[in-house]
Amino acid sequence: MSDTNKVKTAGRPRKFSVNEGIAKAMALFHARGYDDVGVAELSSTIGITATSLYAAYGSKLGLFERALANYVECSGTFVGEALSRAGSAEELLRKLLRGAATAYTEYPGRSGCMVLDGELMTSDTRASNLIRENVVRVRSAIADRLRALGVTDAERKADIAILLMRGISASARTGSSRESLLDAADRMAHLAT
């Protein structure tokens, strides 16, 4: 299937990239959350009509789901790297928290984590469920890796990791610098293990 769809707008055929549309929507959802971004704004930002948006993505929720998956794939790589490279619980937590501090401060105007902050930025049950599925998946992967490292209280430590990542996300969103978050990540990793 081609990445480019022909879409009619104002009587003229127009090409747009489905993947570019997802990336543009992701930036909006990341910055302001699911509830604060409307179909009209999404359509305008992507450069298509609302009818074309529904034709390409099914619905606002369908576009959000694809944007969320794109965010996890692009910005969440630090989680996979931490899980595969850490040799101890402290190293895993440090890599997760430092990765979060770096990823969550990477893009001016949309700091924080689209997933971890996303639950707080929507009252839509379907969007919230999509977000929660991602959080549960990451938490389970962290707990599994901790068990593989011989940690007996892996579930509790995984909960702590998610809690600390949420804190880093909230701090990034409210303006904390990357340097201060990296310093805090090192300190928290040591104290939490």
Rank of each mutant, 00 (worst) to 15 (best):
M1E: 11
S2P: 05
K6M: 11
A10F: 08
A10W: 04
K15N: 09
K15M: 09
F16G: 02
S17P: 03
V18P: 00
G21P: 13
I22C: 08
I22N: 08
I22L: 10
K24R: 15
A25Y: 13
M26I: 00
L28G: 02
F29R: 01
G33E: 02
D35H: 03
D35A: 11
A40G: 03
E41G: 06
L42G: 13
S43M: 04
T45H: 06
T51V: 08
T51W: 04
L53Y: 13
A55T: 13
A55V: 05
A56R: 07
A56P: 05
Y57H: 12
G58T: 13
S59C: 06
L61Y: 11
L61S: 12
L61E: 15
G62Y: 00
R66W: 00
L68N: 00
A69K: 05
N70K: 14
Y71I: 06
E73W: 02
E73V: 01
G76S: 03
G76H: 02
T77I: 04
T77Q: 10
T77M: 07
F78Y: 15
V79G: 01
G80Y: 04
G80D: 14
G80A: 13
E81V: 10
A82M: 13
R85I: 00
L96D: 09
L96I: 11
L97D: 09
R98L: 09
R98A: 03
G99R: 13
A100P: 00
A100D: 08
T102P: 11
T102D: 15
T102L: 15
Y104W: 12
T105K: 09
Y107E: 13
G109Q: 02
G109A: 05
R110C: 11
R110I: 06
S111G: 06
C113R: 02
M114C: 02
V115I: 14
V115A: 02
L116G: 01
G118S: 06
G118E: 07
G118V: 08
L120V: 03
T122H: 02
T122F: 11
S123A: 14
R126L: 05
R126S: 09
R126F: 09
A127L: 00
S128Q: 07
S128H: 14
S128R: 14
L130C: 09
I131H: 00
E133R: 10
N134P: 05
V136E: 06
V138N: 00
V138M: 04
R139A: 00
S140M: 14
A141G: 03
I142F: 08
A143I: 05
A143T: 05
L149R: 05
G150N: 04
G150Q: 01
G150W: 04
T152Q: 14
R156N: 09
A158G: 11
D159L: 07
L164W: 11
M165W: 02
M165K: 08
R166V: 02
G167N: 14
I168D: 01
S171Q: 10
S171F: 11
A172C: 08
R173G: 10
R173V: 07
S177K: 15
R178Y: 04
R178S: 03
L181Y: 07
D183E: 15
D186Y: 04
D186V: 11
R187A: 12
A189K: 01
L191T: 13
A192L: 13
